[in-house]
Design a protein around this nucleic acid. Structure first.
Lengths: 94, 94
DNA sequence: TAAACTAGTTTATATTATAAACCATAATTA
DNA sequence: TAATTATGGTTTATAATATAAACTAGTTTA
């Protein structure tokens, strides 16, 4: 293929998540859910994949007795995202 | 979700094909194959989908006795592509 | 204390992408 | 001229991916 677009990022939801995390210092699970309008299950799965790739860190804690999942983009994740955007630009002749 | 990215175009190969067709007046099957490095089968399937969506026209003819498939982006296809690129830009905050 | 809610995870299913196998015809060569 | 290989694809089987439904574990409220 042309120019390989990182398949881990070329996914609607994972791209939305990474793009979101690239613009904030960190984000809670529910914030991601509100912003993306995706289901919890879908988000949970995609966070796992991003975490496995080392693109984000996932902190699990409690707040007001409830579980709280907080996500943060890593250096590696940010680099991958920026590379993806670059690739996409050349891909689309932008 | 955030901003719906046209799923018909948010596919590595179909995006490559549409992007390619957006930049030329028309293209032959084998030209698309060379440029994308994809397999014939995969291209055949994706051309069908793009055609079904009305994004391209597919002309079948013969040249030097061999079948020749020529593709061309439609007005609708070009509009969809441009919309996709716009959506992507806002999606990624570009 | 039972119902409803929070915050997720796991798993089953639907969708999509892809490659392998195939088809029809043409050209080549033995 | 019969067999072999090449051209230009299409069809179909499989692998990968995305998604939603069902579930878990605990909390709050009536």
């Amino acid at each position: 293929m042309y120019k390989e677009l990182n398949p881990l990022l070329h996914s609607q939801l994972r791209l939305a998540i990474i793009s979101l995390l690239a613009s904030v210092s960190e984000a809670e699970f529910n914030y991601i859910k509100e912003k993306t309008k995706a289901t919890s299950g879908n988000i949970s799965v995609q966070l796992d994949k991003l975490k496995s790739a080392g693109y984000i860190t996932v902190q699990k804690s409690f707040r007001d007795n409830y579980p709280l999942t907080t996500c943060k983009i890593t250096i590696k994740g940010r680099a991958a995202f920026e590379q993806y955007v670059q690739d996409l630009k050349t891909y689309l002749n932008l």
